[in-house]
């Protein structure tokens, strides 16, 4: 346990600098996004009222008040979020491969630590999860700042203030990353974590058997996918809606837990018996 915590700390520190830069990019880009969008809106209003001689009411009727959606759909806002998602996705692979293909083969050290090799697996998994939740928390924290900037720039009559909750409720794609219901949050990120463990298993297959391992890995992910969706498949195609929705959820969760446990067990086996430097 002690070594697991130290490993997590170590793994996180390895990416900390890049992570901090990413957070910086998110903050800067989104604030710029707020300013550009607000500026554009104000210019439009200025032009409408001063050149086209519209009244304030006419303008508001025609263009509506500004709210955070205008900002949230801009590349300045969505872009860095997409970048973060891509970074995490990329790092799921890099967190393993850097130990083999880095300048010094650090895998030698990690695999000869006097601790269960699964701890290395868990530490890497935890790092990915921490990175993800860190991004979520960060967005949550900087949203009030961004919305304050908007408040400074856009007069009260021209804007509608939204809480983060309201924003994510109305935006489907953001809602995917920031589910508003606790159950949904658990579901989305539960599935996410299971997906990461499956990918880790695939990576370990590849690290153990190289090319052949990729094939094993693909087969394993297919099997895992089938198991996860088995309750849904049965419900839809074989049992004609035999289960109650609550039962279906519970069965799906059970399937998820089975796949999670299976991936961990398989990864442990590969790490202990098959892995190659």
């Amino acid at each position: 346990m002690k070594r697991y915590v130290k490993l997590v700390n170590f793994e996180f520190n390895r990416i900390a600098k890049v992570y901090a830069v990413l957070l910086g990019i998110i903050l800067t880009s989104q604030i710029i996004g707020v300013m550009i969008t607000a500026n554009g809106y104000l210019k439009k209003a200025d032009k409408a009222m001063n050149e086209d001689m519209m009244s304030k009411a006419e303008f508001l009727q025609m263009y509506g008040q500004m709210d955070f959606h205008n900002i949230a759909y801009s590349i300045w806002f969505i872009g860095p979020i997409a970048l973060s998602v891509a970074a995490v996705a990329f790092y799921i692979f890099l967190i393993w491969y850097r130990d083999w293909f880095g300048k010094n083969t650090f895998a030698y050290r990690l695999l000869t630590l006097p601790t269960a090799r699964l701890n290395v697996f868990f530490a890497k998994l935890t790092t990915i999860v921490l990175m993800t939740f860190g991004f979520i928390a960060f967005q949550f924290i900087i949203y009030p700042i961004e919305s304050t900037v908007m408040k400074w720039m856009v007069p009260k009559d021209f804007r509608i203030d939204l809480t983060f909750h309201e924003l994510t409720q109305q935006m489907l794609d953001l809602g995917l990353l920031y589910p508003t219901e606790p159950m949904l949050f658990l579901l989305h990120y539960g599935i996410g974590i299971i997906a990461v463990t499956i990918l880790f298993t695939v990576i370990l297959f590849e690290r153990s058997f190289r090319w052949k391992g990729i094939i094993f890995g693909v087969i394993y992910s297919a099997v895992a996918g089938i198991v996860i969706f088995l309750p849904l498949i049965l419900q839809e195609f074989l049992l004609n809606g035999y289960f109650y929705p609550s039962e279906l959820i519970r069965l799906s969760m059970l399937a998820g837990v089975i796949v999670l446990a299976g991936s961990i067990a398989l990864s442990g086996y590969l790490l202990n018996k098959k892995i190659r430097i």
Partner: peptide, 12 residues
């Protein structure tokens, strides 16, 4: 038992 490979095993 410890292993000292032919290249260093610490992060550069």
């Amino acid at each position: 038992v410890t292993f000292i490979p032919d290249a260093i095993t610490m992060l550069p």
